[in-house]
Every structure is written in C-alpha cells, then in structure tokens.
Amino acid sequence: MLYAILCEDVENSLSLRAEARPAHLERIQELVDAGRLLVAGPHPALDSEDPGEAGFTGSLIVAEFDSLEAATAWADADPYVDAGVFAKVTVKPYKKVLP
C-alpha cells in the first residue's frame, strides 16, 4: 500500500538540511531503485522553485510499504530526523486515484 509521509521542518532548517541531504537522498534512491517511490520533494518556503535562503518548510514522500508500521519505522530512521530538520512527521495511508 502507498503511504504519505508528511514532514514539517523546524524554523531555519536550511543548514541542517544541507548537512544531512546526501544521506537523505541516498535512502530515497533506495525506494526509487526498488520501484516503491511515487513522489518525493520539499515544500519551498516561498512560491518559487528555488526559495534561496528562505529554505523549506517541510517535505512530502509518497511510497509503497508493507504496512503503516513499516512506513513509520522508515520515516523515523530518516537522516533528516536524526539531524533535527523535522519538527513533526506524520505518516498516513494514501490512495492514488489520479492520474
């Protein structure tokens, strides 16, 4: 089943993100390689593809996991969690309807 992992950043998370980004992307790539990733990316703090110093307010990952528990465990082990980037992480079942 698909699960949405909704992450909210702490304020001024840009430097924390930069430090942990390579390890974070490496884990996401594992989902890509396994054919389990639907979409992933950050929420820019400004209405812009490149928010510059404004940074990001969070992230969204939608991926396939065996269970809610497995998705939650995966989210809890994210390098951004360890680095203190995320203030809150919510994991919910997700049903793709379109397209």
Rank of each mutant, 00 (worst) to 15 (best):
A75I: 03
K92A: 14
A54W: 07
E8Q: 15
A45L: 10
D78L: 05
P79T: 06
M1E: 07
V81M: 10
E49G: 09
G35R: 09
G52N: 10
A63T: 04
A70Q: 08
A83R: 03
D47K: 13
P51S: 10
L60P: 06
E53H: 08
A63P: 02
P99I: 11
P44C: 12
Q29P: 00
G58N: 05
P51I: 08
P42H: 05
A4E: 04
Y80G: 00
L6G: 00
S15M: 11
K88P: 00
D33S: 14
P44A: 09
L6E: 10
S13R: 00
D78Q: 11
L31H: 06
K96E: 13
I5D: 00
G35L: 08
L31K: 07
V89W: 02
L38N: 07
D66F: 07
H24G: 10
G84S: 08
A71E: 02
D47G: 11
A54L: 05
A18I: 14
A83V: 05
D78S: 06
I5H: 05
L37G: 04
P79S: 06
P93R: 14
S48P: 06
R27I: 07
A70P: 00
D82K: 14
V39P: 04
V62I: 15
N12K: 13
N12I: 00
L60W: 01
L25H: 09
H24N: 12
R21Q: 13
A83D: 05
P42K: 08
Y80I: 01
E49H: 09
L98R: 11
R36N: 08
P22N: 12
M1T: 11
A63D: 05
R27W: 09
G41T: 03
A23I: 08
R27T: 06
D9L: 01
P79R: 05
L14Q: 11
V97C: 02
P42I: 06
G52F: 08
G41A: 05
L98T: 09
E64S: 10
K92H: 12
T57D: 04
V81Y: 02
Y94T: 07
F56R: 07
T72S: 11
R36D: 10
N12F: 04
D33V: 00
T72V: 01
A77Q: 08
K88T: 13
P93F: 01
D33C: 02
L25W: 09
T72R: 14
S15W: 03
S67A: 05
P93Y: 01
K92E: 10
K96Q: 14
A54D: 10
E49P: 15
G55C: 07
L14T: 13
L98M: 12
Y3N: 02
Q29E: 15
V81G: 01
A23F: 11
V91E: 04
F65M: 00
D9Y: 04
E49F: 12
A87D: 08
E64H: 06
H24T: 13
A40F: 09
A23W: 06
I61N: 04
I61P: 04
P99A: 13
V91F: 03
P99S: 12
P42N: 10
K95T: 11
A20E: 13
A83M: 01
E53A: 15
F86V: 03
R21I: 10
P99W: 07
M1H: 08
L31Q: 07
H43T: 12
I61G: 04
Y3A: 03
L2C: 02
Y94W: 15
